[in-house]
Computed example of a mutant assay.
Amino acid sequence: MQIRDLAGVIAVAEHGGVTDAAAALGITQPTMSRSLGRVETELGVRLFERVPSGVVLNPDGELALAAARELVERYERLRADLAERLDPDSGVVRLAFLDSMATSLVPRLLRDFHQAAPRARIELRQEPGHEIVRDLGSGAAELAVTSLRPAGAFGWIGLQEERLVLVVAPSHRLAGRRRVSLVDLAGEDLVTTPVGFGYRRLVDSLFGAAGVVPQVAFESADLATIEGLVAAGLGVALLPETLAGVSGTAGITLAARGARRSIGLTWRTDVALAPAAARFCAFVERWAADGGS
């Protein structure tokens, strides 16, 4: 039994006869009869009873007709959805991005892409880096704006470099300094992201290179929240320079090699991107080459 057989059941019910149903579907009467026979054989019941004017549904047929309409409608909707998804102009782009990019890079990028492809739909997933890698692996996201290119078969388009600074409350003892080393932070309460986050690995690697064991006081998945906690006097933090001062904090240059993070667009190269995602990827490459405009 196939979808077109179920469509035949609907046609026979609507036209009240095999001959008229066959004509409506553009097939021969014997073909229509065989199609109806396949459905009844597979379901193990008769669906129609003969009457002088043609055929009518019996109670089993009424149940089958309702299911057939639902299945055919769902199948047609699936075909339409797939056709739309495979259209580079109106398809769906499944994009994941870092929480810290929610108010800066990503809105600008999406605004410019929308101007170039107004019919394309974007499904957004805002999440930390380790969840982004998971979703790229499972296919829940096709593209991601993240820091650090994932290991393995992943493409990468660099979008921006962020300098990391020490962020302190205005009353902190280091607030007046123009430059500090990580050694100066020994014994300080640190506010940072939880263990397992890509950003936490970056922060830990910087402290490790300086031979300092950070004293973590608070953890938050959101970098903007971390800046707010620092402003409240709950510790110090290493954050992208763009976040310094948002809540009245002070940003101080770090005398540490590698105190930067790279932000880029990444995607799996071992599977083909859907046309809309491929179009987005090509757009981002041009966008980045033009300086993000």
Score class of each variant (00 low, 15 high):
F113N: 03
T19H: 15
V195C: 05
T253S: 14
R279H: 05
L6R: 07
L223V: 04
A274R: 09
E142D: 15
V18N: 10
D135W: 08
L82H: 12
S138I: 08
G91W: 07
G291Y: 08
G292D: 01
I263F: 09
D112G: 01
A224N: 10
G158I: 04
L98M: 06
Y199P: 00
L148D: 10
E161T: 15
E62K: 12
P59H: 09
L105F: 07
F283M: 01
A151I: 10
V56K: 09
A11M: 04
L223I: 04
H172I: 11
D60R: 15
A153V: 04
P214M: 13
A259T: 13
D60L: 14
L36W: 02
I263W: 06
R201A: 15
R119V: 06
R261G: 01
R111W: 11
E123F: 03
E62A: 12
L254G: 01
R121P: 06
I226L: 08
Y199Q: 01
T28M: 01
R201K: 13
G26T: 05
V236D: 01
V18Y: 14
R38Y: 09
G187D: 13
F207I: 11
V167D: 10
A11N: 04
G8C: 13
D112K: 03
D60V: 10
D204L: 05
T31N: 12
G44Q: 01
T249E: 04
V72M: 00
L136T: 03
I3P: 00
R108K: 15
G137V: 05
P128R: 05
L143C: 06
A151L: 13
R279C: 03
G233H: 08
R69V: 02
L148I: 11
D60E: 15
T19N: 15
L148N: 09
P30L: 11
F218A: 12
V18I: 14
R286D: 13
I132K: 07
L254R: 03
S205T: 09
E62W: 03
L86R: 15
E70R: 11
V246K: 12
A175M: 06
D87K: 11
G198I: 01
V133G: 05
R4H: 11
T193C: 02
A282K: 09
A23P: 08
L254F: 04
R46P: 04
G137C: 08
M32Y: 15
P275G: 00
E76M: 11
I157R: 02
V45P: 02
G61D: 04
L238M: 09
V45N: 08
I252T: 07
D135V: 01
Q215P: 00
R178A: 14
P59D: 15
L47C: 07
A231H: 10
A24R: 09
D270Q: 11
T146P: 03
L273M: 13
R179A: 09
G26N: 04
R111G: 07
P150T: 08
S293K: 15
R4K: 12
W156A: 03
V195F: 10
R34H: 15
A289G: 07
